[in-house]
């Protein structure tokens, strides 16, 4: 009975919302703020990737909040799982190919990760995407060699400093009489690596933080996995 009500509820809700949503203009959005942002994003932030200028410029404090959420989630997971460190002894170690393949992928993943972070204001990509790749680079050895451990001290150092430098870059702008998180040092050139002033620095902070955060989350989960 309860299952049936649940199904009816979910289906009914979906149908009701659909009948409302279908009246929306699809494919022709009003672009009220989107259009205005498109026309002045380059001159305000110096980034050719407009999504980047929204993420780090126009909605910079959202990104700060989001980094804080990741930080809070990693810290909470650390609080919950971090009491007892058990190495995953029951898992069998990977074979020769897996272990050495993992080691060889590490530098490649690092390169790609940093490339994506540094070009986030020019092309698709950015701190989040690059950060995830960095986390994967560190997590790969953990999968290939179940006994290996990430150094949590270093990770928390990176995540703390990266987050702090994001806030500090914002505060420097405030100190110079501008608004909090206002982009600085913009040069009016299109498509050059250094064109967007502080934006790539912010994205570097984001990338490092996301990478460290995810790596520490994953290693917490991996280390407690087997003693359930």
């Amino acid at each position: 009975m309860r299952n049936l009500t649940g199904l009816l509820f979910a289906g009914g809700l979906g149908f009701m919302l659909l009948s409302i949503a279908i009246n929306l203009d699809f494919g022709t959005p009003t672009m009220l703020i989107g259009g205005a942002i498109q026309s002045n994003a380059l001159q305000k932030t110096g980034a050719t990737n407009i999504v980047t200028s929204v993420v780090l410029g126009y909605r910079g404090i959202d990104t700060l909040g989001e980094l804080s959420i990741l930080f809070a989630a990693a810290a909470s997971a650390g609080l919950i799982l971090g009491r007892r460190h058990t190495t995953a002894g029951t898992q069998t170690a990977g074979g020769f190919v897996l272990r050495h393949g993992g080691s060889m992928l590490f530098p490649l993943l690092m390169t790609i990760g940093f490339y994506i972070i540094f070009h986030g204001h020019l092309s698709p990509g950015g701190g989040f995407q690059g950060g995830v790749i960095l986390a994967a680079a560190f997590f790969l050895p953990l999968l290939a060699r179940p006994g290996a451990q990430l150094h949590h001290g270093t990770l928390s150092l990176i995540e703390g400093l990266a987050g702090a430098s994001f806030v500090l870059i914002g505060l420097i702008a405030l100190q110079q009489g501008k608004a909090f998180l206002q982009p600085m040092l913009i040069q009016d050139t299109l498509g050059v690596l250094l064109s967007a002033g502080t934006l790539p620095l912010l994205y570097l902070a984001v990338g490092l933080k996301v990478g460290a955060e995810l790596a520490s989350l994953l290693s917490h989960l991996a280390q407690t996995e087997s003693d359930a």
């Binding site: 989107g34 993420v55 909605r59 959202d62 990104t63 989001e66």
Partner: peptide
């Protein structure tokens, strides 16, 4: 529109956390 794309990026990361 770039704004929803930026918002989705934020929302996805929040969800992952």
């Amino acid at each position: 529109d770039p704004v929803p794309q930026a918002m989705v990026l934020t929302a996805i990361v929040i969800g992952v956390g």
